[in-house]
Simulated assay, not measured.
Amino acid sequence: MAVGTKTTASRILDTHKIHYTLHDYEWNEEEMDAVTVAEKVGILPSHLFKTLVLKGDKTGILMACVPGDKELDLKSLAAVSSNKKVEMVPVKDLQALTGYIRGGVSPLGVKKRYPLYIDDSIRDLDPVSISAGRRGTQIFVRGADLVLVCEATLGPIAR
């Protein structure tokens, strides 16, 4: 079903019998932005979804996935997630909260289950690319399958 070394995220897809492929790429600290990663794995930046970790003033920690060629709209995410305000968590807190490090945060296999919000542009995309849970590996999967497995809420959260 997949090529490459399995990750926690890919094993979760296996458990749900979801088809995906793994794509490895050379990475370095200066080139971890979504557009560069999309180019390295051969997918449009609009099909590569970056995973962000935030804190809402009412709900606490939550996660969001937005296309690599867009930015997260904090006001829209706040509205969709029933918060007045959301803000990014400090990079130094990522591993403690998710089990992942910057550049390797996946919406799958997070240490603790947080509410996940994905930009609604994912709905009909096939494939989309997400982090496999480690730097240098991306998962390609159908957008609808990712939403289903993650039990994500869709909304217009990117601009």
Rank of each mutant, 00 (worst) to 15 (best):
D14N: 05
A38C: 03
H47I: 01
G42L: 12
E31W: 05
M32A: 09
N28A: 05
E31S: 12
G42C: 11
H16L: 04
E26M: 12
K17S: 13
E26Y: 10
P45L: 09
E29D: 15
N28P: 04
H19P: 01
T7V: 04
L13M: 03
H16C: 08
T21G: 13
K6L: 12
V35W: 01
Y20T: 03
G42H: 10
I18A: 03
E26I: 12
H19R: 07
A34H: 00
E30R: 08
E30I: 06
Y20L: 07
K17R: 15
G42K: 10
I43S: 00
E39F: 10
V37E: 08
H16E: 15
V41K: 01
A9H: 00
S10R: 00
Y25Q: 03
E30N: 13
V35S: 09
T5A: 05
I12Y: 10
E39W: 08
E31A: 07
R11G: 01
D24W: 03
Y25C: 02
G42V: 07
V3A: 14
H16N: 14
A38G: 03
T21W: 07
I18H: 04
I18R: 13
K17A: 14
T8A: 04
I43E: 07
D24S: 11
V35F: 07
V37N: 13
L22H: 01
E30V: 06
P45M: 03
L22A: 02
S10A: 04
W27R: 08
H47T: 04
K17G: 14
T15M: 09
A38F: 02
E31L: 02
V3N: 14
T15L: 13
S46M: 06
K40I: 02
R11W: 01
T15N: 03
D14T: 06
H47S: 13
T36S: 06
D14E: 11
T21L: 14
H23P: 08
E39P: 02
G42Y: 09
M32Q: 15
D24T: 06
P45E: 00
K6E: 12
L22M: 09
A38H: 06
E31D: 10
P45V: 11
W27Q: 09
E39A: 12
W27T: 15
D14W: 12
E29F: 14
E29H: 15
E31F: 08
R11A: 02
V3H: 15
T5S: 07
D14V: 07
V37Y: 09
D14Y: 14
